[in-house]
């Protein structure tokens, strides 16, 4: 069954059934990915364009691998940061891609809403690989997939997401997705990075990490953009790390063998200690593997034929 949509732009707009269908398909895809010969003819003759306006190694590579395993042809367009005054506009680039008859476009762009903008123009499907601070649906889906793999049914589980939630598309997408699956989500960060307006996501918001750790099944650290310090959003890495860094000592407060996650790339010693990052609790590498499976699932569900890949 294909998804009844042209694009995957965010988890806010997705319903639970669709999320479950994607996770289910990703399980099959992971099986294929784990085979010694991982190549399918399923998407032979389909073209997937990676359009990346922001530097990204892991997400772009992950999408590229996913498309290739499924047999699609991939093209990568890495564009230097878009400029309002010079260079081709996203609108014109979209028209060009349209004319080249691509089947699917993966977009990473620094502007919130850019994926929807592109999707409105293109007949081809669009997968949002991160639009500004808005959403990063494939990251959230791979996070959810990884949590389920480890914890089983997520309903009623407690997930703590800590860091710069204000500027984080990962936090937003995870909040939407997890909420829909009945997870208790808590967003944590200093008041400057987890301000009141984040209450719009309908999840718990707090500034005190230690108080919400007891009972946490998952603790996810977000990458801290170090340049935020210059904007005055936090005073020092030292204090940030002291209040919000994941350490072995701090994680004991959960009272259980909690799962630790990070979307990468990590600032070791800032939001996560070396010890935690390399511990058995941390599923960070598994997140990367699962990322390929999730992206395979999405590409297949959007542009795959009616043929069942499992058969």
């Amino acid at each position: 069954m294909k998804l009844q949509r042209k694009d995957v732009l965010g988890l806010e707009e997705m319903d639970v059934e669709e999320i479950r269908q994607i996770l289910q398909t990703a399980k099959v895809m992971k099986g294929i990915l784990m085979r010694p010969i991982k190549k399918l003819p399923t998407l032979k003759g389909k073209s997937v364009v990676n359009l990346f306006y922001e530097a990204s190694t892991r997400t772009r590579t992950s999408f590229e691998m996913a498309a290739k395993v499924l047999g699609a042809d991939t093209t990568s367009i890495a564009v230097a940061q878009s400029s309002v005054s010079k260079g081709e506009s996203l609108y014109d680039t979209a028209k060009t891609i349209q004319a080249m008859r691509a089947d699917l476009v993966i977009l990473r762009h620094s502007s919130s809403g850019s994926a929807s903008f592109l999707a409105d123009i293109l007949d081809a499907g669009v997968i949002n690989a991160g639009d500004g601070q808005h959403e990063h649906p494939t990251q959230a889906l791979l996070d959810i997939f990884t949590m389920e793999e480890k914890l089983g049914d997520l309903e009623g589980k407690n997930v703590v997401i800590v860091g710069d939630v204000l500027h984080s598309r990962v936090a937003r997408s995870n909040a939407w997705g997890l909420r829909k699956l009945g997870v208790n989500v808590t967003l944590v960060g200093p008041p400057t990075l987890a301000p009141a307006e984040m209450g719009g996501l309908g999840v718990k918001l707090t500034h005190d990490l230690d108080s919400v750790l007891p009972g946490a099944d998952v603790v996810m650290a977000l990458r801290l953009q170090l340049e935020r310090q210059k904007s005055g959003l936090f005073p020092s890495l030292r204090e940030y790390s002291h209040l919000y860094g994941l350490t072995t000592e701090r994680l004991k407060k959960t009272g259980k063998q909690s799962v630790v996650m990070h979307p990468g790339p990590m600032n070791r010693g800032v939001e996560i200690s070396d010890e935690v990052a390399d511990s058995a609790q941390a599923l960070i590498e598994r997140q990367v593997t699962n990322g390929v499976a999730i992206r395979m699932a999405l590409i297949y569900l959007l542009i795959g034929g009616s043929a069942n890949v499992v058969a």
């Binding site: 808005h134 959403e135 937003r172």
Partner: peptide
């Protein structure tokens, strides 16, 4: 405008 709508959409408030 900074508020829950800007927070939700990830548009700087």
């Amino acid at each position: 405008r900074r508020g829950t709508a800007s927070g939700r959409m990830g548009l700087k408030g």
